[in-house]
Design a protein around this nucleic acid. Structure first.
Length: 473
RNA sequence: GGCGCCGUCGCCAAGAGGUAAGGCAGAGGUCUGCAAAACCUCCACCCCCGGUUCAAAUCCGGGCGGCGCCUCCA
């Protein structure tokens, strides 16, 4: 059974879904007022690996919801500034998210709801009316607030004591009128020029949803009252997730999420990467510097998800190299010539599979899992050199790597990139032919020239006994 | 003022009582027309000081240093 750290209890706990074999998982997605940066994507890559571990390693069915926040102060301000309709404005960033998600090999999740989709707004309105009925709300200045004092368990996730945040704590200076500074808004009263919705039958006058409400409502609508895992970045623990719990549990009286999983920050130059600090890099930024998304994915998985990871260009370059080691090894399997199969190889592969699975089940220890893979690579490279690997072993080895990669999703990603080299494949193949002819007539100057020209265009050639292979730089 | 995390080789990073995985970089070697790849060898008393223990990178106490949350934020 997998062990997973639960922020709610601040400890690792054995994880299994509450019902049957199906995991219901919600991930807080992106607010679509700008292109997501690789810090945002750290969370999404980690939750993707969690999802894949649950699915492919543990055999659960996974139903995952990841939302887009497409109505809030920033999206509204951005749309206004751009002179665009809110929906059209946020569409752009959703499209970019999808591009980047694909580039990083994120497996599509089952649902990607937007806050402003009508069924979601209706669900939010319904949730407010449930909170009304349970006495958790009040109205002020056309807005609707959640009254924290009505919910004694408030602050349990973030471990905040109700009185604790006094001197030095910055107080929310929201211009909406609240009875208590710590109360939060469920529904913001309509202001000129802003989009609004209303549900008079439920006593909800013109306005728009507060940020926290959408996640509670959409999670409930699409996954049910109690879900198995709720995930997001550590920065969401407070106030976002705390408030989600207040809303959902205040409305239903049932526990909202059994596990809370939080991914630590990606930092850059020893500071958190965030849009407000202006130190962000996006996938296009990374590609413009000549790096590939697969290397970003590997970098993001190179450290445990609950530890801060300091992003540097040097470490991205290092991961480009280590990924190359992996793909070089897999390419080498094609050249294995010997016959038969070997027990020693099989058991070495089994050891690695066990180590990999154990690491992933140990609170998603991707760094240790990668260690197991690289140890296997060296052992098998060594065995190949010694002639101790036969053609009969190759499928077993490939199967193991397929298994690793279904979970980590990095090798297949790199292979997809490799399949689109900067020089057309038929041209590469023709040049290899030309070069082989030159080598046969021992015209090494001509052969080297061809290799250098291709290298300058981003394609490397490697000679071996079995022939010449090419790869992307 | 309150709460929390972290400090392991030049860089990245596992390990969480039994004597330091892995990747990148580096040095020497084998192989090769050359190059690349690959392999072999080399490359760490785990921030400091105390304590507990037969045994501590791992536990406890105290320092020092870094980061984060309590405000919008993945």
């Amino acid at each position: 059974m997998m062990r997973l750290y639960n922020t709610l209890t601040r400890s690792e706990e054995p994880f299994a879904p509450a019902t049957h074999n199906a995991v219901r998982m919600y991930t807080c997605g992106l607010t679509v007022y700008a292109r997501g940066h690789i810090g945002n994507f750290r969370t999404f890559v980690c939750t993707d690996v969690l999802r894949r571990t649950l699915k492919y390693l543990l055999g659960y069915d996974v139903k995952q919801v990841m939302n887009f926040t497409d109505v809030d102060d920033r999206t509204i301000a951005g749309a206004e500034k751009a002179g665009m309709d809110l929906r059209a404005y946020t569409d752009q960033y959703i499209a970019m998210f999808r591009e980047d998600a694909q580039a990083l090999g994120l497996e599509p999740v089952e649902e990607m709801p937007r806050a402003t989709d009508e069924p979601n707004l209706a669900a939010m309105a319904k949730m407010i009316s449930m909170l009304d009925r349970n006495g958790h709300t009040y109205r002020s200045d056309d807005s609707i607030y959640f009254k924290i004092s009505t919910l004694p368990s408030y602050g349990r996730l973030a471990r905040l004591d109700h009185e604790g945040m006094k001197p030095g704590a910055r107080v929310d200076t929201d211009s909406y009128a609240k009875e208590d500074a710590r109360d939060f808004v469920l529904w913001k009263g309509h202001r000129d020029g802003e989009p609004f919705w209303e549900y008079p039958a439920l006593g909800i006058t013109a306005g728009r949803p507060g940020w926290h409400l959408e996640c509670s409502a959409m999670a409930q609508r699409l996954l049910g009252d109690t879900i198995d895992i709720h995930a997001g970045g550590v920065d969401l623990i407070f106030p976002h997730h705390e408030n989600e719990i207040a809303q959902s549990e205040g409305a239903t009286g049932k526990p909202f999420s059994r596990f809370w999983v939080h991914v630590e920050y990606l930092i850059v130059d020893e500071q958190k990467m965030s849009k407000s600090l202006g130190n962000t890099y996006t996938i296009p930024d990374v590609m413009a510097k000549g790096f590939r998304p697969s290397a970003v994915r590997l970098l993001l998985l190179s450290a445990h998800y609950r530890k801060q990871l300091n992003f540097t260009w040097d470490s991205l370059a290092a991961h480009e190299e280590s990924l190359r080691r992996l793909t070089d090894f897999l390419a080498r399997l094609d050249t294995v010539a010997g016959d038969g199969s070997h027990d020693a190889v099989q058991s070495r592969v089994d050891d690695a599979r066990r180590a990999f699975a154990a690491a992933m089940q140990d609170d998603l220890n991707t760094a240790a899992a990668l260690g197991a893979i690289f140890e296997l690579v060296r052992a098998l490279n060594s065995s190949i050199d010694a002639g101790d690997v036969g053609a009969g072993d190759v499928p077993v080895i490939r199967q193991a790597f397929d298994e690793f990669d279904r979970v980590l999703g990095v090798i297949s990603l790199r292979r997809a990139e490799d399949a689109r080299p900067p020089v057309p494949v038929d041209e590469i193949e023709r040049l290899i032919e030309d070069r082989q002819a030159a080598r046969r007539r021992r015209d090494f100057a001509a052969a080297d020239r061809i290799r250098q020209e291709l290298a300058a265009r981003g394609v490397l050639l490697e000679d071996s006994a079995g022939g010449t292979r090419w790869k992307r730089k």
